[in-house]
Design a protein around this nucleic acid. Structure first.
Lengths: 356, 356
DNA sequence: GCAAAATTTGCATTCGTATGCATCGAATAT
DNA sequence: ATATTCGATGCATACGAATGCAAATTTTGC
């Protein structure tokens, strides 16, 4: 009666035979909304269960030309932000009955093999995150008629959609926050130079500082890598005119910078040095770091991403859509506090100067 | 000449027509080792390029009944160990021309839907990691004739393979290390109670302590979750007879325990409290933590995992294989040091008592 | 109870590729 | 030069499920 053990080759035809109906009937039983009487449906379900039948998604894909697979490209997962994204994407896609084909662990250079695989599997959509090969790759995919969403990255060309947060405003708010905190000299540890997030955060920061009359900004590059961020921090913090406050382009690097500052240079944070990050990733919340940081609304970003994909898949129309969400400046202990502007919300302290 | 833009429906037949050959010829061109003359091969390749043709992996799978997809099940990615595994798996599988279908972000409870999806996609193999539903799920899959490898977990039933490290020996070595370090009272913060890793590490630890004449072990459970580990640490460290040394079942929790010890209870590590972890995950190496920990040889574990799968896929024989690798006790700053037994290797300090 | 409409059902075909088999041509052997 | 072999090629079919269409059945209306 039970079965459990399932022979590899249980096909719809075998079930049909066993249930005394046609193969079409079996197919319709498993196709929501198909025309089938409750009676035969039950018969089929019974036989299916007995034989341990499950529709073959491959065969289905072939004929519907829908794989129900979404490719996710994340070159590296070192930054905890991305595993979080992945987990949330897993949830969101599963809810829509889609599956997640992951491309990771390859060096950024060789985009071509990845692209080839994507095309061969006829994925229904593509999410590009944490990869610098976005631009070229995305254009190609879009040209091939596959919906593409850039996650946490944008591009000028308008063929592909994107989901981001207000990086520019974030950078600006951080500048305001640091100025309000009484700092007078500033540093920036940059992410990947050609990434839109880095560019926008930087520009907003510079703009915000300038608006307050500060132009003495020192810059080093960490390329979103821990190792390089450490090196950058060493250089910046060894300067005679070491800045009082540093905006690090993301939390992943900020953690490294804090370690270097404290343990290699013996600096007290925030008394002697203020650090602000971006992302509000796990370790930022750990007591050892307590990083003051611009949060990215992960859940909403993922929702938007999946939304866009589902829309484009359903409509068949690939029209680039750009969703820009906003985060908050979460105030913790890694930076000196301004006199005012800090409010409490949902048990967190955030920076909200009056005009905002 | 170039093309770039690719019409959705370029099939092998279209290429065949364009090249003036049969569809079979096109197929053979893209099938390594098939019988085809260099001349026609070139003709086909030229046409394929011009039309932007790529073999349809779905259709190929249908007929070969090989999807070249490996399912990876990781219920959660909070513990950085798993993203690392994922990245390495991505690399290793790509090298074998396999792809990675990721199942993540679901609560452990509902294993059934996951199982259903696995079966429907006719994946060629399954890797189960960081999930407690291993036992039931794995049996089912194995019964269905799909190779399964448990990653960092074992099970008694011998239907499924597994790759682990010597958890028991690891626990024992940690006990030896702590005893040699002069500690006299001990604590254990446990992982998931029904997981084999937790059980083995615990048993080895207890055994090692007992061998040295210590039986005064206090235990709390953190279930491999950060939040619960924090709570466990609070309880354990508030005891009047707080232990001098704590073995935390993995680094992910050890980080949390250190934060609580330092910032909530003001304890100095390692002067007043020694902490040892397991995994040697990223944050363990960060200066703020510098966790002394049993390493798990990630790369080799992944290699073995993929090895086992490839073997079983190639041979069609599913014979459970259990690979057990060994790690090292990496000595850092979170625990008091023994007088002897610490040696340097590859720029790292490891604990290697004479008999080992 | 009968005709018309609505619903089920089965047949046959399709998706795009791989592959056994037969055929054909060229290369080798005698 | 002819017989033999071997590689290259094409034909036809198969993989497993979805679906348009027509036939069969049930339901509805009067």
């Amino acid at each position: 009666m039970d079965s459990g053990v399932k022979k590899p080759g249980v096909t719809s035809s075998r079930v049909a035979e066993h249930a005394g109906v046609s193969q079409s009937a079996v197919s319709r039983t498993f196709t929501p909304g198909a025309s089938i009487s409750p009676k035969t449906r039950q018969k089929v379900l019974a036989s299916a269960k007995e034989l341990g039948y499950r529709p073959n998604a491959i065969a289905r894909s072939l004929i519907t030309s829908r794989s129900r697979i979404i490719a996710v490209v994340m070159a590296y997962l070192e930054n905890l932000f991305y595993p979080d994204v992945l987990e949330e994407l897993g949830r969101a896609l599963a809810a829509e009955n889609y599956h997640l084909l992951l491309f990771t662990g390859f060096m950024d250079r060789d985009s071509d093999p990845v692209f080839d695989q994507l095309m061969q599997y006829r994925v229904d959509g593509i999410i590009l995150a944490s990869t610098s090969l976005s631009s070229e790759l995305s254009e190609e995919c879009a040209a091939a008629g596959i919906p593409v969403v850039l996650f946490n990255r944008t591009t000028e060309r308008d063929a592909v959609s994107s989901v981001t947060t207000r990086n520019r405003e974030g950078g600006k708010r951080i500048a305001d926050f640091l100025v309000a905190g009484g700092h007078t000299s500033f540093g920036y540890i940059a992410g990947l130079e050609n990434s839109s997030t880095n560019r926008d955060r930087y520009e907003g920061y510079v703009e915000g500082l300038a608006a307050n009359g500060y132009t003495n900004l020192v810059v080093e590059t960490g390329n979103y890598s821990r190792k390089e961020a450490e090196a950058a921090a060493r250089v910046m913090l060894s300067r005679p005119d070491r800045p009082e406050a540093i905006f690090v382009a993301n939390d992943h690097m900020a953690v490294a910078v804090m370690d270097v500052a404290r343990y290699e240079l013996g600096l007290n944070i925030p008394e002697e040095l203020s650090i602000v990050g971006f992302d509000d990733v796990g370790p930022a919340r750990w007591t050892s770091y307590g990083i003051t940081t611009m949060s990215q609304p992960l859940k909403r970003m993922v929702e938007s991403t999946v939304d866009i994909l589902m829309d484009q898949i359903a409509s068949g129309e690939i029209e680039a859509e750009h969703r820009i969400l906003s985060g908050e400046l979460i105030v913790r202990t890694s930076a000196r506090l301004p006199q005012s502007g800090i409010v409490e919300r949902d048990g967190q302290r955030i920076y909200r100067p009056r005009e905002a």
